[in-house]
Design a protein around this nucleic acid. Structure first.
Lengths: 214, 214, 214, 214
DNA sequence: CATGAATGAGGTTTCATTCAT
DNA sequence: GATGAATGAAACCTCATTCAT
């Protein structure tokens, strides 16, 4: 049984000594993990380095709050997905045409990357490096896969509606995803990179690639 | 079946105890490393697992033949780049138009991936995970970057020749590279994936994305 | 009898499993290191042997408490220098003439050696074997050099005061140091050696060598 | 049975490929060992580094010619002692008084050190670091001890003859030895050191320390 | 005589985790 | 809730030595 069972308690209490809420501690550790993963990569983000970044004196505290490395990584992914979802969904849903939604998806991803490069880089790192290591992680890979499936469905509808041309939608969506993630990876290492401009370029690129040819 | 089947020759006579010539042993270890990296990923490819795969009794032997992990990884990259270059170059140079060369590049990459999924997956893994860890590795990152620069130059020429439309060539080439590598990554985990078909799809995709619009 | 007897305190109650406070554990390890270095020499004093001597189950614990071999050795040196300084300083400062101070220095060193042969032997071993290996160690070599410089200054003053004759003070002080350290080295291997008597002999020797000739 | 049994053969033969005589190879390796020991110290002088210095491609060759590290070190000691003896003996025997012989001994040692700093430094290193490691080494420690005993005898005779004053001769000779060795140690690291001048200073020093006081 | 591939022990260090306090 | 000392596995590397050729 883990400490996480007693989450969201004691927010106010006597918190005199900087005592964190369970949830607060977890959030603090996740934030540190995101930074370290973004800077050093998935496999160099050890508990020791994360604890150091978080200002904690012991790695034991991380093990105490998370049920292993997998649990922490899952939380990192979950946190960033939540952030991304909250940012992206309204932007996409504000569009009416399929093409506009695709553009909003691509540019939205990279606008978000401009604001939160570390978060997205950490997400990409963790997803890319999660082999079968953690069974619990598979759930998130499934989520990712599920998101792609939804987007594939959108592409199919756009094709059926005659707005998009003929192409294999899975290949297309994976190419889009890969291109975006590549920019994300480079963005965190090269702050001078104009991520938003790259977003516009990619949106143009995939607009041409998807549009029905005259 | 063991990795030693590939690219390995024994020194002489009865070879009873498996004494290899220097180059042979190195090749054997590199082959084993490629397999392990492709299967387990860069950072789980420890000397112990590579030695085990190669049927060696000690990790010390790897240290004996390679000047550290970086040296081995460099050899892996070098070996695969050599393989890829030998395969790709004639195919590309056989084409006359820029568009045909781009198609040959994309399809060639993935045809090669169909024949050598592990080699390409290992290459992608190592390149992706080589942070500043090894100074000697930077050389290969530079090679990679240099290759991209050459391809960018091709794109520019195609634009100048009016064969390709207007787009930012660096963004384009990185999107292409990312899309290919994504297929490579998935191919090694999912043997059912039709890599050649994905190659044709991507070639079509980027053909539309690069062609001058009427 | 174990090294833990020296300079070690347990945290609290029944201390059944040997959990030490940070400082206590460090002290215990340093004490074990001193013993092992004195007995086996600097380069045979591996973490494994030190851990064994200290009754620890893993070398990892030493790495946990010390930032590498250099850190441990620095602590060894620091500890013994502190011990020596506390012992020597009052004895020397109690003397009024330069000659008496020189005698107090020599005899004090070897009286201390009689009481703490291992500590001094370890000090001599570590200092003698610290090549440029550890940058942090250079600091201690500088301390040692600085101590010599101070003593050289004393010799010069004694010469200026007419108490000592003409000689090159650096050569003199190094000869003294070398002679003392030689006794220290032999003392730890040969418990029968009368270290205090050797101290008196050396004091006499260098008294004759330094005194102004009539 | 070792290769050394067939020593001093085939000096002339077909030595077409740079084939060394057994003795020649041993000498070459000993010379390389001396250099490495002098530069890096006893315990960093691994077979690998010695082979590298000697221009050999394998450490196996060293193991082939020497019956272990101890054997090589013994040869190093033996070689340097032979050199030193040939240099020192005539110089000392040319003197008539005990005091002059002592001076010749000290200055001779350091004149030799000026000409052969590495040889003497290697000797000092090996002697100082030879614990009970090698039983065969004990023989050389005994030789060293025996040499000291002879010198002690000389001191006693000088005292009996009234040329020297009253002191404990073992302490005296060890102080002399230690002072000389200290200069040797520093000489190899600091080429600017005026070793011969230090020799004269030490000779003066110990002349005052040994002479009968008026 | 010589080679150099192979070996296995031993070195330091980092890692995630556990557990008494 | 929190701490941080302790653990043991695993990592890479170097070492001296052996042995088939």
């Amino acid at each position: 049984m883990q400490a996480r069972d007693s989450a969201v308690k004691q927010t106010g209490g006597r918190g005199q000594r900087g005592t964190f809420t369970e949830a607060g501690r977890r959030a603090q550790i996740v934030a540190a993990a995101i930074e370290v993963i973004a800077e050093l990569g998935y496999h160099r983000a050890s508990f020791a380095r994360i604890a150091d970044r978080a200002g904690l004196s012991s790695t034991g505290l991380i093990s105490y709050h998370f049920n292993g490395r997998g649990d922490l990584m899952r939380e990192v992914v979950s946190e960033v997905i939540k952030l991304a979802d909250g940012y992206m969904r309204p932007r996409i849903e504000a569009q009416t045409s399929y093409a506009a939604r695709l553009r909003a998806f691509i540019e939205g991803n990279l606008d978000l990357c401009a604001d939160h490069p570390q978060e997205l880089a950490a997400l990409v790192e963790v997803i890319a490096n999660s082999r079968g290591e953690d069974p619990g992680m598979v759930a998130f890979l499934d989520v990712t896969e599920g998101t792609l499936a939804i987007q594939v469905e959108q592409l199919r509808k756009a094709q059926a509606a005659g707005e998009f041309g003929a192409f294999e939608p899975w290949t297309m969506i994976r190419a889009i995803r890969a291109a975006i993630d590549d920019v994300v990876r480079r963005a965190v290492r090269n702050p001078a990179l104009d991520v938003r401009a790259a977003g516009r370029e990619l949106a143009d690129l995939f607009d041409r690639a998807t549009r029905r040819t005259a």
